[in-house]
């Protein structure tokens, strides 16, 4: 005989069910808020880190660039810089050592930016000129038409046709090195005259028109042992369309173009650049002013460069693939 065992199952009452649902919803709301706080927090941290990284990069880059501007060193003046190239001072462009820092209010109209496409509207630009890269030190007095110099570093080179500045604390000269020969950490060079625009002329001239009469120098004695040879370090800093830009989503970026190198995209998302000179003059016990590119008085001594970059809203960049800087040093274009 089999005994049938019955199982009684009792469900939850409506009150119990409602309570469970309410408690569950409350927990879900709590968890939702948790997630809602977490995501913006993380995005905010990432943005902050990116901005700091960009600012650190710009601080380093601009500091290095500005240190080499003009680069008359102990000479500290452009009055005794002689141009021995066939190109007149007014046409030297980025090969001129001065003005060291020049704000360009409308880069689209400036000859220096003629080759650059997709410049941003309403954005200013910066031209930094100088001979800040040390190449070699004269190892014997300059004489005749040949010189010998000890290279500054193992990878330093002065090739034929390179425009270099030679300077000491009295004078400086721009010339094109010719017939260069490297051996044992030294370089031999000459400065024969030629026909091309960047070849040497028979005589040099200063910016105010004084003609040089000495050996590759304005005054005798010419350059002696210890004088330095320097390479140009001029650059253009401007805002133009990013490589990540597309027709339906234009993106702008801060760019740098060196004298002989390719353009390098520095910071993606920069839409405009505003620059101003911070200047000083000795009148009335010392006066200070901040001047736009077109308003800098002739007697002003520029001591500061105010650099203001305006970035696109972060939301606009969210759907643009981000570029990342390679670790371990600054790339050379």
């Amino acid at each position: 005989m089999s005994v049938e065992r019955r199982t009684f199952q009792r469900g939850m009452s409506l009150i119990e069910l409602l309570l469970a649902v309410v408690l569950g919803v409350l927990l879900l709301i709590g968890l939702g808020r948790l997630l809602a706080y977490g995501q913006p927090l993380q995005q905010s941290l990432v943005r902050q880190a990116e901005r700091q990284e960009h600012m650190a990069l710009l601080n380093h880059l601009l500091g290095e660039l500005l240190q080499g501007t003009g680069a008359q060193g102990c000479l500290a003046t452009t009055d005794t810089v002689v141009n021995f190239l066939n190109t007149p001072w007014s046409s030297l462009g980025l090969l001129a050592p001065s003005p060291g820092v020049e704000i360009v209010a409308e880069p689209k109209r400036a000859p220096a930016f003629a080759s650059i496409r997709d410049l941003a509207e309403d954005s200013q630009a910066l031209v930094v000129r100088g001979y800040g890269a040390p190449l070699a030190t004269l190892s014997e007095d300059l004489a005749g038409e040949r010189g010998r110099a000890k290279l500054f570093a193992a990878d330093s080179r002065i090739d034929s046709g390179d425009v270099v500045m030679i300077r000491d604390c009295r004078q400086a000269s721009l010339f094109s090195a010719t017939s260069t020969r490297h051996s044992g950490g030294h370089v031999r060079f000459s400065w024969q005259a030629g026909e091309g625009g960047l070849a040497n002329s028979d005589s040099g001239v200063t910016q105010d028109g004084t003609v040089a009469s000495a050996t590759l120098a304005l005054n005798e004695p010419s350059f002696a042992e210890g004088a330095g040879l320097y390479a140009p370090t001029s650059s253009l800093i401007y805002v133009a369309e990013s490589r990540l830009s597309s027709a339906d989503r234009p993106v702008y970026a801060l760019w740098q173009k060196t004298l002989s190198g390719n353009a390098l995209e520095l910071v993606t998302g920069v839409e405009r650049l505003y620059l101003r000179y911070g200047a000083w003059r000795a009148d009335h016990g010392g006066e200070i002013g901040y001047f736009d590119a077109d308003n800098l008085p002739l007697d002003a001594r520029v001591v500061l460069l105010a650099f203001c970059e305006l970035r696109a809203c972060d939301e606009r960049l969210e759907h643009v693939p981000q570029k990342h800087w390679p670790r371990g040093g600054r790339g050379r274009p």
Partner: peptide, 26 residues
């Protein structure tokens, strides 16, 4: 007979879950 959770058990369980959730939220 299978018996469901009592209301007290549900409340205690909820409280135990809610404490770490609230702590994490804080």
């Amino acid at each position: 007979m299978l018996r469901g959770f009592t209301l007290l058990e549900v409340l205690v369980a909820t409280l135990l879950v809610a404490i770490p959730v609230a702590a994490t939220q804080m």
